[in-house]
Amino acid sequence: MPGRLENKVALITGAGSGIGLEASFLFAREGCKVVCADINGKAGVAAVERITSAYPSSAKFVKVDVGKEADVAAAVAFAEREFGALHIVFNNAGIMHSADDNAETTEETVWDLTMQINVKGVWWGCKHALPALRRAGGGSVINTASFVAVRGAATPQLAYTTSKGAVLAMTRELAVIHARENIRFNALCPGPIRTPLLMDFLNTEDKKQRRLVHVPMGRFGEAIEQANAALFLASDESSFITGTDFVVDGGLTAAYVTPEGETMTKCPHVNFSGV
């Protein structure tokens, strides 16, 4: 039985870990040729080795700093050169800076770096992929945003939240512009996920609980759960879906407050600002 991405070629940024790693393996399992792009060469090579040990000749690595436009353009060219076409782009790479906080304390260097990678990096991924997707007769672009693109975060992270709101708005605009070209754009909006990126940011038990108290399912999501959502958006099963904020968040954005959260917000020593 053919895979859900049979005869497709995908470029996935941030493929060395977390959601990008799980998506790369899953896409290959479904018959896709995958270009694994990451700034971390060791992690990217390891990702390709993991994939090709199960699905030979299905993945290649390219080192990419998405904060540099030339790197992003080169990755698109690499995908077409190595696999003959490009049908799927998963602009997944991003950062969450440990010094990111509120409007008064977040430094300008942190703000600028976050925008460079999380916003410009996605823009360049879309910009340079478009000609290749046209040559392929259409395709799917998935941009990783976040639940904080539609809700404020309980833990201050102003630059990150702002960047993900920009990704969501950008995705909607591009979806409308290119809808008649058979090129779809959707924003994947994960809830709190157990990835190194988030766990490094939520570096105390208090910070973790401040996040989890808002999740009706009461747990962090897993990277593979986001990868499964990305697979759906990449596949022809979602052929009439474009311009969405595809939220995969354990019910977080559906809830005003969970029963546990109602109890904890009454504790005078705990500040749950952002509920």
Rank of each mutant, 00 (worst) to 15 (best):
L26Y: 03
V45Y: 10
A229V: 06
N91D: 10
L113W: 08
V213K: 09
R172V: 06
L188D: 01
R184L: 12
R184A: 06
P216K: 09
D245T: 01
T253G: 09
S235R: 02
N118C: 09
G41P: 00
F201K: 12
V110W: 10
A129R: 03
E225P: 07
G125F: 08
I95D: 01
A79R: 03
G94W: 07
H87N: 14
A37L: 07
A154C: 07
N102H: 11
E107S: 15
E237D: 15
A93K: 05
N203W: 08
I51V: 15
D100K: 00
A254C: 13
R184I: 09
N102L: 02
G261A: 13
V66T: 13
G18K: 11
A187T: 01
L5K: 06
D38F: 04
F240D: 01
V45C: 07
P156T: 11
T105H: 13
A229W: 04
I51T: 09
G67W: 04
T242A: 10
E222N: 10
A79V: 09
L188T: 07
H178E: 07
T265H: 12
A149D: 06
A229R: 03
S98H: 14
L5G: 02
R180Y: 12
V215Y: 00
A254I: 02
L168C: 02
T242M: 09
Q209M: 15
A136H: 07
F240K: 03
R4C: 04
S140I: 03
V119T: 13
G274A: 08
R210V: 08
A15M: 03
G218Q: 09
V110M: 09
A136I: 01
L130N: 01
V167Q: 02
G125C: 04
G121S: 05
V89C: 05
I39A: 14
P156K: 03
A47N: 08
G125D: 09
S98T: 13
L168H: 03
T13C: 09
F201G: 01
R50D: 11
G138F: 09
L130S: 11
E205C: 10
F201Y: 15
K120L: 13
R29I: 06
T106K: 06
V176S: 14
H214G: 13
A74Q: 11
T13A: 02
T258E: 06
F147H: 13
E260C: 02
H97G: 10
H269L: 14
P216C: 08
L231A: 00
P56Y: 02
F90C: 03
Q157C: 15
V64P: 00
S24Q: 05
N91H: 10
A37G: 12
L168Y: 08
G221L: 11
D206L: 15
I95V: 15
G251N: 08
G139C: 04
A85P: 08
M170F: 14
L198M: 13
S146K: 05
R180P: 01
I19W: 02
D65H: 12
